[in-house]
Structures are given as structure tokens and as C-alpha cells.
Design a protein around this nucleic acid. Structure first.
Lengths: 205, 205
DNA sequence: ACAATAAATTAACCCAGGTTAACGACAACA
DNA sequence: TGTTGTCGTTAACCTGGGTTAATTTATTGT
């Protein structure tokens, strides 16, 4: 079980894997439930068995911006919270009914310290995390909200289909109202492009 | 020498350290020089001996947005370029005259595979990288341009002092013109706050 | 010291996203 | 069946950043 969840990282059997089974704590969440809140100490790594989790930064002025989504089969954690004494800067909520496996980071560190293979798996996990964050950073820096929306819908179609527009807006980093306008614009542009493709000229205006 | 550069990660002596010295390639750059360009294969890790490097995303419409700065004593790499066959999505330039040590990632992987301590050092490096990216992501998602500017100037005063406003703007993710307006606003607000602090009331308007 | 180039500032105009509010669609629930 | 509440959509207005261009202020080079 813990093994299945490691699939993203490593296909071989790993030493002392049973230690995971004893350390893992299963949690069932209903849609909207909070997994953990910002400012808490949460030195844990989570594996999503099924469902979906959203990680959100809540600002003082009452806004909430979604940092990332994590689906079944994926793992996640708050890096800040993994540091000794560190605290999460974001909260996590279940997007729909969700089951997660919670594993104290300490256990992974111990495994890593006694088995080089585990150290490697851990390193690989951070590599993947950094990779994703690098991508997100690039999107936030180089794309307009509209471009971010189009790419999100295209690249993560299945995921987007399970979300409310509200959450999509929050991830795109735009208000729900703005997302509506963007959707309309994209829709109109869509028919525009259709016209051009179809007749070879633009029939709008 | 390679040892000094690892200071950020590990204080103890590491096995086979001499392999670094033979694999490291020193590069001297003048202000403005390009270290490597986007779309290149660059499976290397860089340590900055002195000077400063900026990592920049160059968009198709001719814009350039600075992803991050790296100063002396720090290391950096393009995670995408470290993946087998991967390519950088950003370019790097020297902000001022700069000396870097270039190390093939392959060497680090080999060291990591033969020595658990090295595996750990590598893991720690990715931890730190993810940590920084998490912070940057939070700033981009939750702060306004003005807030990003104020925080940048406050948190990284020394670094900011060595940059042109142009580069600061590019990091804040606004145009140089917008940065000017922001600076003026902040300046005015500064005197405003001064008034309030000093006399207990607001003398503007 | 002066010319040439780049960087920073300011003004004017445009536009996309933020904000508030109103309305219709839909689901959950008594 | 009606009520309540949430979600998506639209309209109206406001604001701050983008854009262009002109001007002033550093920097550089000779």
C-alpha cells in the first residue's frame, strides 16, 4: 500500500518498507474539510490515495490563492514545515471526498539515514518538487491570466473538469468575475479562429 | 576550494572531494555576459565564487522577466536541464563581473551513488531549492507589485543596492515605468507615515 | 572635458483586472 | 413546494499597470 504510493518515485522494493505501514496514518476528508492550516507545525508528508487536495495561501485581506492541486497517486508536503521547527505558510483543503496517508517526515529521514536507497528516493522527490515549482514560477512570470487559463484547461483537462470555476480562478490568480470575462473572450476568440480556419478570412467586425 | 563552496550545505569534510576539483571548470564573466541560454542542454551545477548571476525567462514578445538572483557563495542550476535530455527554460547572465565554478551534475550523481553522505548533501540542496521556490511562489501569488517591491528592498537590501532599477523591475514583474510610479508612491507614503508618526495626524490633503 | 549611450523619470492614453451589486441557474434541504 | 445558499454570469465603475514618447539624469568612452 505504502509501496503503491511510492510508484511515482521508485518501482523497486525498498528496504524496511514495513516501517512505513506502521508509521502511516490514514485520514478521510469530506469535500471542503481542512487537512491542515497555515502557521501550524506539520512535519508530515502526504500521499493521496484518492480524491484531491488544494493548497491555498490565505491573505490577511481575506483572499485565498491556490498554490497547487494534488490528485490521487501524488504526494505533497509543506517544505517550510519540514524544516525543524518550521511552520506551513499555506493551508490544505479537500476539493472532494479524499483519503490521504500521512507520514511523519522524521520516519523518512531515519530511513534515509540508514539506507542509501531511501536517501536517493528522497532526493528524487525533492527534485520532482523543485521541477514543478520551477514550472509554476515560469507560468506566473511569463504568462498573462488569459494565457494561464488556456494552458491550464489544455494541459490539465481532466483535473480542471473536477473543479469549480471559483477554484480555477483562484489558481489562475484572478477573481471569479475576471475568469468569466476571460472565458467569454476565449470563447469569442474560439469562434473567431473557427471563422478564419473555415473560410480563410475574418468575418467579425 | 570546492569545499568552501559547499559551505551552504555541509560543514564536514566529504569523501572523494578531490573529484570535484578535477571536474570543476572555472568561468570568468564580464557584466552582461551570458552564461547559458534557454533551450540549451546544461546538465551543470554552478557555484558562484564572486559576483552575481541573474536567471531570466525571455518571452517570445521580447520581454525578459527575472526568475532569481544568485550571489557569491550560492549555487544554482536549471532543474529541467538536470533531467536526462532536459533543456533549460531560462537564460543566465552576469549582473556584474563574475566568477563561477561549473560542475557537471553527472559527477554529483556519481558521488551520491557511491557515498550516502553525498546523497544526503544533494537531497539537502534540493530541499533548499524547493524552499526558495516555495517562497517566491507565495510572493507572486499573494503580494501586489508594490508589496513585492517593498519587501524586496527591505529583505535583500544589500543585493538590491547592486542592481539597476531595470533589473529590480524585471524581478518584481513590472515594467521600469511602473516601478518608477511605485517608488514615488512608496516615497510619498513614506513622508505620509512620517507625518502621522510625528504629529499624530495626517497633513496631506 | 565632452560627446555618446544607457538609465531613470514624467506625462498621456489605453486596457484588463478588481470591486460591487444585481440576477438567474441550480442543488440541498426542510 | 418553497427556502436557502452557492455558483456562474453580466453590468458599471474604478484603479493600477502597460505602452509610447519626450525629457532629464547618470555612465561610459575617447
Amino acid at each position: 500500500m505504502a509501496k503503491r504510493v511510492l510508484g511515482e518515485l521508485c518501482s523497486e522494493a525498498l528496504p524496511d518498507e514495513h516501517r512505513l505501514d506502521t508509521a502511516v496514518h490514514i485520514k478521510h476528508l469530506q469535500a471542503g474539510d481542512c487537512l491542515f492550516s497555515a502557521e501550524e507545525q506539520h512535519p508530515n508528508v502526504y500521499f493521496i490515495r484518492n480524491g484531491m487536495i488544494k493548497m491555498v495561501y490565505e491573505t490577511m485581506d481575506g483572499n485565498a490563492w491556490i498554490k497547487a492541486f494534488s490528485e490521487e497517486g501524488k504526494f505533497f508536503a509543506s517544505l517550510m514545515a519540514l524544516e525543524p521547527g518550521g511552520k506551513t505558510s499555506f493551508s490544505t483543503y479537500a476539493v472532494c471526498d479524499t483519503t490521504v496517508e500521512q507520514l511523519p517526515y522524521k520516519v523518512l529521514i531515519e530511513l534515509a539515514n540508514s539506507h542509501p536507497v531511501w536517501q536517493k528516493v528522497l532526493r528524487r522527490a525533492f527534485e520532482i518538487y523543485g521541477f514543478k515549482k520551477e514550472t509554476r514560477e515560469k507560468e506566473l512570470l511569463t504568462l498573462s491570466p488569459e494565457e494561464r487559463y488556456v494552458r491550464f484547461i489544455k494541459d490539465r483537462e481532466e483535473l480542471a473538469g473536477r473543479l469549480t470555476d471559483r477554484d480555477i480562478a483562484s489558481y489562475i490568480r484572478v477573481t471569479p468575475v475576471a475568469l468569466c470575462r476571460i472565458k467569454r473572450r476565449v470563447r469569442d476568440m474560439g469562434t473567431l479562429i473557427y471563422c478564419i480556419d473555415d473560410r480563410g478570412e475574418n468575418h467579425e467586425n
